[in-house]
Each structure stands twice: as C-alpha cells, then as structure tokens.
Amino acid sequence: MVLAIYVGFIITTAIGEYQGNPAVNALLGEQAPNLEGKEVRFGWAQSALFATTTTGTMCGAVNSLHDSFMPNGGFVTLSNMFLQIVWGGQGTGTAYLFAYLLLAVFVTGLMVGRTPEFLGRKIEKREVVLASFLILLVHPIAILIPGAIALAFPDQLAGISNPGFHGLSQVIYEYASAAANNGSGFEGLGDSQPSPLAIAGGASSTATALWWNLSTCFSLLAGRYIPITALLLLAESMSRKQPVPLTSGTLRTDTGLFTGITAGIILVMGALTFFPILALGPIAEAFQIARGLG
C-alpha cells in the first residue's frame, strides 16, 4: 500500500515536471520539461524521483530546488511530509504507520462486533488518546499554527519570495519539513541568518530570520519529541496487556481488505486535515497556472 502511494506520488511529480510550465512552453512554442532549478545532469525524471523520495524518507537532502517544481511536485512533497508514512525516515515512518493502523482498527474493528484489538491487545481509552494525539493533533499544531501566524503577517515575518499561492506552499513546506524531521527546504524564503558583515552593511532581514529560526524550532521539537514520547508510552501500555487469543471472530489485520481500509483512514484522517492547505497552495497554484494567470 505504501509502495502504491509512493509510486503514485512519483508519477504525479514526474508528469508535472515533464509537461513543463505552460507559460514557459507558450513562450518557447514547444513542449519542454520544467528544468528550472534543476541540475541538468539529473534532468526532470530523476529529480522527480529524488524529490519524492527525499521528502518521503525524511532524508532532507535535495538535488533540485523544490521551490521551482511545478505545483504537482509541491503537492507531492508536502503530502509526503503531512502523512509521514510513505516509507518514513529512520523508523518513524513505521511508527506512524502503526499509529494509523491502530486507529483504523479502532474505528472499523467495532464493525466485527468486538471491542477493537490490535496485535492481540485490546485498544482502550489510553491507546486511543496516545495514538490520536500523536498523529492527528501534534502535526497540524506544529505545521498549521505557526504557518498561519507567519502568513497573517507576511511582510514582517515571512519574507516570501513568490507571493500568492506559491508563497503559501513555501511557508507551509518550511514547517512541514521541520515537524516531519525532514530538514529539506522548499527555499525561496528569507529565512537565513545574514552574516555579521551583511548586518553591518545594513541588511534588515534579521527579524524574519529570527522568527523562522524560533518558530521552526518549536515545530521541530513538537513534531519530533511529542510523537516519540507518545509512541513509547503506547508501546509500554500495549506490552503490559494480556494478549487475547485469535479466533475466527477476531479482526484480521493482515488481509488486503484491511490494507485498503487503512489507506482510507489515512486518507480521511491524515490527508483531509491538510487538504484545505493543499487546496489553497499547490492546487490553487496549479489552476492559476493552468488558466495562464501565473
């Protein structure tokens, strides 16, 4: 299932890059892949693969500037970091997937007429609190709240290079990257601390840099340590439960059907949380470009 989402994401990005920017294409009079911000050595296809993988795995290395991707690329890289389960970096992806599985079991498990159990252990209030807190609440708090503050004061705080829908993507990407332990940048923000020389020379971006450093710190800490603590508590509480024997009345979690259900739960609980942001960011941008306004 994760592989399917991953492949789907790569294809989405690649199509976006391959078709190129219609505005640019119109100028060139031919269809060409979007190569802005990419190393020509890698080309559009490898860059798409790398961008999808690096955001999916919380790697953080980049071989092209995500800022310059077509909206499709922005959509995919953002989604990767919102969900945090497409491969997932260094163990956390699996952990998040487990938390989603737990919630899927909790909601749908009732439908087999038993109180839900996962890996032979009953899911009770404590587990639901930890799991839902972990994946449903922390991530939006870490991404959306600072993002909203930054965008409420775009001039004072954000320092966005491309205003409009794309700017929104820039800001949200920054926080998503921080909260999802990714570390890659969409770039295009005035977020770097200027060198002392530059300040001496009268550079004035200190205020935005300070805001970015502090707010991403918050996202980073919240996005990393709260879920890790919650996961450890969850594992601890699950391990102490007496296992329930498997019968034909037990919900099986190793079937294709259940995988599909989990995908549905991830879609509704995870993806829909961020859907308005994606709609206002990359999706709106895509329509904008499509209509030739960009």
Partner: peptide, 19 residues
Amino acid sequence: QFRPLTANQLLRRNILIFG
C-alpha cells in the same frame, strides 16, 4: 442487522455498506 459471519465477512460487508 446482525448476521452470524466470521469477522472478515462481517468487515467486508459492513465496510461496503457503511464505508
């Protein structure tokens, strides 16, 4: 409506209807 089925049959049925 309750039918005495195995958990997987029940799940498939209910997911289809309610999901």
